[in-house]
Write a protein that binds this DNA or RNA. Structure first.
Lengths: 195, 195
DNA sequence: GTCTATAATTAGATAGAC
DNA sequence: GTCTATCTAATTATAGAC
């Protein structure tokens, strides 16, 4: 479907999202101006409003699509048939997916404060939905007697915190390969739940 | 030492810091205006500049004093005489200290992006200094053969991430007491390092 | 679809009265 | 030590030309 020349909506739209994601992650939502985003895209500030209602919607859309893509990707992941295998699958998936999208992850964790209340509730529900994935695995394992988990909810939060922390320190140029990081985290997670 | 009436520097100075800490933690450094801080303190915006050079110094001072207080408090803590005891002491100290100062902790982790480059280097060095405490404990335990830690640096970052994550989910009004949280994290940490 | 121009608001920081 | 007033610059968002 060729468009009229001069019509770049299909290109500019995604470019706006990409630029916003990069800039929000680097400098923070509140510190980034619409003019900065426009400049990064290569248009004037006014043109941005063809692709987003306002700055808040830009933030919300980025977070929502990140969390929805996270759930969708997990549901498409091959799942193990024992709690131990499922926990390993989750650990590897979480690290891989998060290291692949550092900017989106960073925004989803750091910019919750800048969401309007109504948007905040939507994002929190999506995040909770994802955390429930791990909680279900831990509960299944505990009930089957293969995990030693005295408090399922606390362990869920502790492990999520540990795994998501990878994004804070991991550098591709660093000492460890991604596979090695996955392996080491898997080992720690399994030991932590007493598997 | 009584001062002239109308001279409230001893009171207003700390109030400025407290208000800034609360507001930065709640809404983010970039989203908070000097007028908001002044309003919270009960003075006009211009009066703030008697107590801080500018907004950036306010942020830097908060982060610096938080991290210095953290190190000082750790050095005053009774230290165990085995790696296992030291790891437990560190775990309990970290959780206790962090849950006592949620706003300062939040700022120290979330506002690194908003530091001037020179200030950033100072804060990063202080943070590294604190992380080295845990790394030293883990290395000692590994060398003594009481911890099974294949990669000391990675384990340090993983545990710090897990422990600091407490501040994200813990609520005093929630299901678990602080002592119970400490106990459960201690147990997980010990298992994770194979102690 | 994009740009230019602009409206309306707000920001950080300072000067000078009291 | 604080307030009032103000300067300068930047902000989001919109209107209308092209």
């Amino acid at each position: 479907m060729a468009r009229k020349s001069g019509s770049h909506a299909d290109i500019t739209g995604p470019k706006v999202r990409d630029a916003a994601e990069r800039l929000f992650a680097r400098h923070g939502y509140a510190a980034v101006s619409m003019r900065q985003i426009a400049s990064e895209v290569g248009v004037q500030a006014g043109a941005l409003y063809l692709y987003t209602k306002d700055k808040q919607s830009l933030l919300f859309d980025l977070m929502q699509s990140h969390l929805e893509a996270l759930m969708t990707a997990w549901l498409a992941e091959p799942r193990g048939d024992t709690p131990g295998a499922r926990l390993e699958a989750f650990t590897r998936f979480h690290i891989r997916h998060h290291l692949d999208r550092p900017d989106a992850v960073f925004i989803a964790y750091m910019e919750l404060r800048n969401l309007d209340p109504a948007n905040f509730r939507v994002i929190e529900a999506l995040r909770k939905h994802y955390e429930d994935v791990l909680e279900d695995i831990l509960r299944d394992g505990a009930e089957a007697g293969v995990f030693a988990v005295p408090d399922t909810k606390l362990t869920t939060m502790a492990l999520i915190g540990m795994l998501t922390g990878v994004n804070i320190w991991y550098r591709a140029s660093g000492r460890l390969s991604r596979d090695r990081v996955e392996d080491l985290y898997c080992e720690m997670v399994q030991k932590a739940v007493g598997a």
